[in-house]
Write a protein that binds this DNA or RNA. Structure first.
Lengths: 114, 114
DNA sequence: CCGGTGCATCCGGACAACCGGATGGATAGG
DNA sequence: CCTATCCATCCGGTTGTCCGGATGCACCGG
């Protein structure tokens, strides 16, 4: 069957999908955008991250089409593209909160867990 | 408010949560376990990954309590701990599939996108 | 008791992702 | 125009994560 190649591709795509959500700064950004559209400077202000960092993360989210942009004068306004993605994020955050202690304690994904 | 500290922690926990899901091998493993419990050797067989790799990934999933183990003779049987996690995985895979081309093309999360 | 199977962990080594700081382009205001 | 603001991207360096191969322990069958 033709789906043989696809099976691995789907795993790969899924992994990339979740990896995009696997950064605290991007989580914070997406959370803010779920409330309402924000300009870059607002996101910098709200997250406390450097401007270059925020822009890079936004480029990542833009590329993956998690967010869309719109120019407004000197500012660029970012919005969530698909509410579905936000929904998965929300569900994940709930589950993460339940396991908060474990996950935060899990410093590394490689060796060196207790 | 007291939630100030927590806000960042939640982002961190969520990021770790999703990062665990952000590896193709772990996605494949979890998918198999969502169907039914598997022994390590079965997972090695099914995924095509090396045994040491599979065991390491399982250690990660075990630590984060995504899976639980049960000894059966010389074998160790792994099962999904919480169906909720599997549900998030499933939803994510659907969304990833829709964006498959984009996500697979996105070789890197850092710079160097087209 | 001994050999064999099944699994977990250790050991470098390689690369991807993250970061801060600096540079450069676009836009509006004086 | 000229300047200041806002944003995107580049650069060098650091760390985290993944990997294959090898070692060691637990358990079962003979």
């Amino acid at each position: 069957m033709v789906t043989t190649t696809t099976a691995a591709s789907v795993d790969l795509a899924a992994a990339r999908f979740f990896r995009v959500l696997g950064d605290p700064t991007r989580v914070a950004i997406l959370q803010l955008l779920m409330q309402r559209p924000h300009s870059v400077s607002e996101l910098v202000e709200a997250t406390g991250a450097r401007q270059s960092r925020v822009s890079t993360h936004l480029a990542c989210l833009r590329w993956c089409e998690f967010v869309t942009t719109e120019r407004a004068g000197r500012k660029v306004i970012y919005s969530i593209t698909d509410p579905e993605v936000g929904e998965v994020l929300r569900r994940g955050m709930e589950l993460a909160q339940a396991r908060l202690d474990h996950l935060v304690a899990c410093e590394r994904i490689g060796p060196e867990w207790a």
